[in-house]
Design a binder for these strands. Structure first.
Length: 562
RNA sequence: CGGGGUGUAGCGCAGUCAGGUCAGCGCACCUGCUUUGGGAGCAGGGGGUCGGUGGUUCAAAUCCACUCACCCCGACCA
């Protein structure tokens, strides 16, 4: 490809909202162009990268015997209603109405659609197992699109589905995918961690995520430095950090300061974790009293999972319900049911309000002194929390979720009636698995891993072109002739981008480093005088000199070692 | 949805508080000459209903109201 014909408007500047390296570089190198919030155009250079990634996906999926098909993005509401996800998906689903007034959805995923094929056409154990996959655009009206393609509202997903007779078969399909995914990510040059993950709306029994550790990732994973277990924070159930408690008798102390954790711990000169924080919530007009260790915050999402719709009581309500202002309420002898966070379990010698303005109790032993209706897990996890296996402090990292594999089981087959007959003539639900990979996320992650202050440094497997042939001076006829010859020669074995533009050398060098083609072949008058061609590694900036005649041989060798 | 912010040429921005002399700068683009190994110089040029609607005013990018869009931080996902 001649650069003079290529649509590739590189930029020096980039919108200020672009934060992460990948976001900035994707815009500067014209890989993508925003169209609307969370909706991106893939420009020629970006699409070449995405195509490379898709080729790797196809190769590795085919290797495990998967068959490619393509399902529609536009889907009728009826099939979603069969599984209940028409409601469950809520606002995340793009919905529309056709001319016949029928409700449709742009598919956010395809379990329902694929199951319609199954239930009609797979009737015998003889037809199992199967693995089917597609590379498709998914539509999700995300609450907050971000990081360019990291969380978009339209995005390309490789999704595959396995169909087996039983859980043993599912286990095999699942591990085939796990292996394929490892090969896929390493083929793309990416280091990933496999972590156990939460199940949520997909349903099923087990799931693992393929995480790419990187600061701009929006997921949090935890790693135990001791036992090596890695998990998504949502699936980790870490323990609250360990502190020393001393048992003692209850005492009433004068605390003439505002009743916040900060103020009280400073006034009494004790660590915040020795305080017990009370928070009153209201559910359907009924007060719910929660207590949590002073160094933790309540995770209201978890609270909602426990209690349903619930809201925090205003300070006026607290005064009215308890008779004392917020910082001084006491969970001892509470009129309302007390739910204690797990961080309170086993704690002793705690400090809490004394149900009297400007007074606190200290030395509270919750198990001895309080009536706790139930211990629940409602704290917001934070750094310093402990591994549930070996009680070591966990290490936290941000990560990009590149892939997710689920053992779905029989949820969809049962709800949608996908049954087969086994060799005994017995009707059984098909056991399913579902496996996704975010194609653009691979591109973004690769840029995050491979870039420097000049631009992108593509790993060769997904580079948009293999070689960048740069003719520094297009008015030098000798240089032009040599460049044209090399272009013709190299094009036979490589994907060559040929910078034949009428631009100054500096401009070309900077563009070359920005778009990150692994090898640059530089033809310039300086070299020509000495009869040499320069070959530059984008990654290290090292330059290898050779002669025009030997260029192809040298490239052949270098390409192998990349 | 909650919190914060931004909309002025393709991109980056100034101008808005103190309404008029305000349609401006840099990059990019077009023409010419010079230049030619790390985003060139000079000269000339094209491009805008200042996000939209309505209002206040002799006068609105600027003030007011409403509205739309986009971004950033939190709850969901590949």
């Amino acid at each position: 490809m001649r650069w003079s014909n290529l649509f590739l408007p590189t930029r020096k500047e980039v919108p200020k909202e672009a934060e992460s390296a990948s976001h900035k570089l994707m815009l500067r190198a014209s890989l993508i162009k925003p169209l609307s919030s969370g909706v991106y155009i893939y420009l020629p250079l970006g699409w070449r990268v995405l195509t490379k990634i898709q080729e790797i996906l196809r190769r590795e999926m085919n290797r495990i015997g998967a068959q490619e098909l393509l399902m529609p993005a536009l889907t009728p509401s009826s099939i979603w209603k069969e599984t209940g996800r028409w409601e469950e998906y809520g606002d995340l689903m793009f919905r529309l109405i056709d001319r016949k007034n029928i409700e449709m959805a742009l598919a956010p995923t395809h379990e329902e659609i694929i199951t319609t094929i199954l239930r009609d056409d797979i009737k015998s154990y003889r037809s199992l197992p199967q693995i089917w996959y597609q590379i498709q655009i998914k539509y999700r009206d995300e609450m907050r699109p971000r990081g360019a393609v990291l969380r978009a509202r339209t995005f390309i997903m490789k999704d595959s589905y396995s169909f087996d007779r039983d859980r043993k078969g599912l286990g095999k399909s699942f591990s085939l995918h796990e292996d394929a995914y490892k090969r896929i990510f390493s083929s793309c040059g990416l280091k990933t961690s496999v972590v156990s993950a939460a199940i949520d709306i997909m349903g099923g029994s087990e799931s693992k995520e393929f995480m790419f550790v990187c600061p701009s990732g929006e997921d949090q994973i935890v790693i135990c430095p001791n036992c090596g277990k890695t998990s998504n924070i949502d699936a980790a159930s870490p323990l609250s950090s360990k502190v020393n408690f001393k048992d003692s008798k209850i005492e009433r102390v004068h605390t003439p300061v505002p009743g916040t954790v900060d103020e009280i711990s400073r006034f009494l000169e004790v660590a915040p974790h020795l305080l017990m924080k009370s928070l009153l919530y209201i559910k359907d007009d009924n007060p719910i009293w929660t207590v949590i260790r002073g160094d933790y915050e309540i995770d209201e999402e978890k609270l909602k999972r426990e209690f349903g719709e619930i809201r925090i009581a205003s300070s006026e309500e607290v005064l009215e319900l308890v008779g004392v202002s917020v910082g001084y309420v006491s969970p001892i002898d509470s009129k309302y049911p007390v739910y204690a966070d797990l961080s309170i379990k086993g704690a002793k010698g705690l400090i809490s309000g004394a149900n009297e303005e400007d007074y606190h109790f200290k030395g509270i032993n919750p198990e001895r002194d309080m009536i706790i209706k139930k211990y629940i897990n409602i704290r917001e996890y934070k750094e310093g929390d402990l591994c549930p296996e070996c009680e070591e402090p966990l290490k936290w990292s941000n990560a990009i979720e590149l892939g997710h594999i689920f053992k779905l089981g029989t949820k969809y087959s049962k709800l949608m009636g996908a049954f087969y007959l086994d060799e005994n003539g017995e009707e059984k639900p098909i056991v399913m698995g579902s496996y996704g990979i975010g194609v653009e996320r691979i591109m973004a992650a690769a840029i995050e891993q491979y870039h420097d202050n000049k631009g992108i440094i593509w790993p060769k497997q997904i580079a948009p072109y293999h070689l960048l042939l740069i003719n520094l001076n297009i008015s030098d006829s000798k240089g032009v002739a040599l460049s044209e010859d090399l272009y013709r020669l190299l094009n036979k074995d490589y994907e060559v981008l040929y910078d034949d533009r009428d631009e100054r050398a500096g401009h070309k060098f900077n563009d070359a480093d920005l778009i990150g083609i692994p090898l640059q072949i530089i033809i310039g008058s300086k070299g020509l005088e000495k009869g040499i061609v320069e070959i530059k590694y984008r990654k290290t900036g090292e330059i290898e000199e050779t002669t025009p005649e030997k260029t192809k041989d040298v490239i052949d060798k270098l390409w192998e070692t990349l």
